[in-house]
């Protein structure tokens, strides 16, 4: 998919995050949604149509970027900056509310 503009040969990334367990390079100031756009297999399934979805509006209105971030489901990935070691997992159903 996409490639980060910071991703230049010979230049190290700022941090590593985990997308569905896979180590993924990330840069300061980018959002979880931008990582999702370049990580393979990082789409979620729409709970309505069952279709695969990726972040769309990048500004918090479309909810296409819902993802599990450090265990918190239904997080809008486009509103959350990355942090070193962050665990990002695709969400395939509606969020579970704890009992």
């Amino acid at each position: 998919m996409f490639k980060s503009v910071h991703d230049k040969p010979g230049k190290a990334s700022d941090m590593t995050v985990f997308v569905n367990g896979a180590e993924t390079a990330a840069w300061n100031g980018e959002t979880v949604a931008s990582v999702l756009l370049r990580a393979p297999g990082a789409e979620r399934r729409s709970t309505v149509s069952g279709e695969p979805r990726l972040p769309y509006c990048q500004m918090g209105v479309c909810f296409e970027c819902l993802v599990i971030v450090d265990g918190v489901a239904s997080t809008q990935g486009c509103l959350v900056p990355v942090a070193p070691g962050m665990r990002i997992e695709s969400q395939h159903g509606p969020r579970e509310i704890s009992k």
Partner: peptide
């Protein structure tokens, strides 16, 4: 007047 709130979609509860 009636006001209504709606949450995000969550698993069936």
């Amino acid at each position: 007047r009636g006001q209504i709130l709606v949450t995000e979609r969550v698993a069936p509860i």
